[in-house]
Design a protein around this nucleic acid. Structure first.
Length: 492
RNA sequence: GGCGCGGUGGCCAAGUGGUAAGGCGAAGGUCUGCAAAACCUUUAUUCACCGGUUCGAAUCCGGUCCGCGCCUCCA
């Protein structure tokens, strides 16, 4: 059986239109996503971008592509230096610490690690080499140990952000360095100042400017032309515009075939950002919510649209994750007490799964439409709940058992594409319940003990005693669900 | 001022020419010792507003109003 490329369409910022994905190297997609400047904890807006590209990556892999994914760490930067000086610690130590924190956050959010995670501080030769090439090509000029990029030398400058240099209001909000030939020239290399990390270079000691590292590292690890380059919409100008000027100025080749940009996460209608101070860190959220809840929430809107962050939104996501978890838990419970499944056996709904996957592909092939995927996911879960016997018991019909097993597998597989239910749905449920309990200040062993007593009471048909315990737990915030496979509890 | 994005039911959210997915919430029902969970039914003659194109528009064109993003660091 031969693999042929699926018809995946991606909305490309450069052309402002959906484009069919045709990777440069057949069967392989090379992706570079701009990482963070590591001087603080990551916030939910960062999480959105990383989760979106994690799903892009998982989906492409699921569709048969080999995916090479690179995400950088910017560990040399003005803000890092400023923060480190505040803390009176070496900038690279501070950066290292927040790289670790970021990795922890992303790991908890079940984002797959990149194959390569280059850091500015460790890529000086590559950065210096590209800067040298830019100077040789007439795109860079040296002034007192600084190197600037001459935007006038790159005639396509502005093609991504659709900006015309003359129309920009340079210097309106920030004063312009008068040594620059053009107000929008930007630093490739900055001469060292006291108290800053520095590296030797042909232009004297110093450090790289902000944009050069992404150009240098992405082309170094992925080749002169990348398939996909991603990041938040706020990076389009000037960061990505400058990357294009640098990379294309140095290589003479198209830098990126598909530009993908994620929409902002908003709070009360405004972008969540460090500078506005209206941000929630990933850690803040994970203190009260399971990572799957945040992930689910961030995937409920299409990645290019703004998504409004709110506690209500998270709560709704929590309810839905609970629903999927319960459904999976219910299916597994039934299947566990049924006879072994005959993999060759008849299926009650032969069309159900093929149609499901066809629709999932249609949704995701169309610029990764996760909201549509989620809707299909829900319909399938509903179908499963519909087929499950009203009172959970052993299912005798092998066709039905096989159908339930197939749905269960499809749900798990779908969850994996979305990066949900990392361990298992049961594990997610368990963790969610424990989180809720600790928030409510309820003791787990106590709950279990009460439930055990109630089960005794019920089996003795002492229903008034059973109801008493139910009420007692209800007051603690715990509600019970009786079923033949046992009494399951949940928290409000 | 320039460039770009968006306004869909109480809330969230798909839908880029063929007659409004899905979720939450709400109401009723089934099931249940009671309950919960789950399932079923109902809940937008209408897609910010005004014109236009078309047999046909939420979807295309023009205009208006409103919101947001970028133009400074920002995922």
């Amino acid at each position: 059986m031969s693999w042929s490329p699926p018809p995946i369409h991606i909305f490309d910022t450069m052309t402002n239109s959906r484009q069919k994905l045709v990777p440069l190297h057949p069967g392989e997609v090379r992706i570079y996503v701009c990482g963070l400047t590591v001087y603080d904890y990551s916030h939910v807006g960062h999480a959105r971008t990383f989760i979106v590209f994690d799903v892009v990556r998982r989906y492409l892999a699921y569709r048969g592509y080999r995916v090479v994914f690179v995400r950088n760490h910017t560990d040399v930067d003005d803000k890092i230096i400023a923060r480190a000086n505040q803390n009176q610690e070496p900038p690279l130590t501070l950066a290292e610490r927040f790289i670790e924190k970021l990795d922890e956050d992303l790991d908890r959010l079940n984002c797959l690690p990149p194959q390569v995670a280059p850091r500015v501080s460790q890529e000086m030769p590559v950065i210096i080499e590209m800067t040298t090439r830019l100077i040789e090509a007439g795109h860079g000029y040296v002034v007192d140990g600084d190197v600037f990029y001459d935007v006038d030398s790159f005639h396509q400058y502005g093609k991504l952000s659709k900006k015309v240099l003359e129309d920009l209001r340079a210097g309106e909000r920030v004063s312009v360095d008068e040594r620059k030939r053009h107000p929008y020239d930007f630093a490739l290399w900055k001469a060292t100042k006291p108290g800053e990390p520095k590296w030797p270079s042909p232009w004297g000691e110093g450090r790289p400017g902000w944009h050069i590292e992404c150009s240098a590292m992405s082309t170094h690890y992925l080749g002169d032309t990348l398939d996909i380059h991603g990041g938040g919409r706020d990076l389009i100008f000037p960061h990505h515009e400058n990357e294009i000027a640098q990379s294309e100025g140095a290589t003479g080749k198209t830098f990126v075939n598909y530009w993908m940009h994620t929409g902002p996460l908003t709070v009360d209608g405004e972008k969540m950002s460090k500078s506005l101070g209206n941000f929630w860190t990933v850690r803040d959220i994970l203190k009260v919510h399971h990572p799957d809840v945040l992930r689910f929430f961030l995937l409920t809107a299409h990645y290019r649209k703004p998504i409004g962050f709110s506690q209500d939104g998270l709560e709704e996501a929590r309810q839905r994750v609970l629903y999927f978890g319960r459904t999976l838990e219910r299916l597994s419970g039934i299947l566990a007490i049924c006879d072994a499944i005959d993999p060759e056996g008849p299926c009650q709904k032969p069309d159900l799964l093929p149609r499901y996957w066809e629709e999932v592909h249609a949704a995701m092939d169309d610029d990764f439409n996760t909201p549509r995927f989620l809707a299909l996911f829900h319909e399938l879960a509903k179908k499963a709940n519909d087929l499950v016997p009203a009172t959970p018991r052993k299912v005798k019909d092998p066709g039905q058992v096989r159908t339930l097993a197939m749905i269960r597998d499809a749900l798990q597989h779908s969850g994996a594409i979305l990066g949900l239910f990392k361990g298992s749905a049961e594990e997610t449920l368990r963790t969610m319940r424990q989180l809720r309990l600790s928030q409510l200040g309820v003791d787990l062993p106590q709950v279990e003990q009460l439930i055990a007593r109630r089960i005794e009471a019920r089996s003795a048909k002492d229903f008034s005693r059973a109801d008493e315990i139910r009420q007692q737990l209800k007051e603690m915030g715990v509600s019970l669900m009786d079923s033949p496979t046992g009494t399951v509890w949940d928290v409000d």
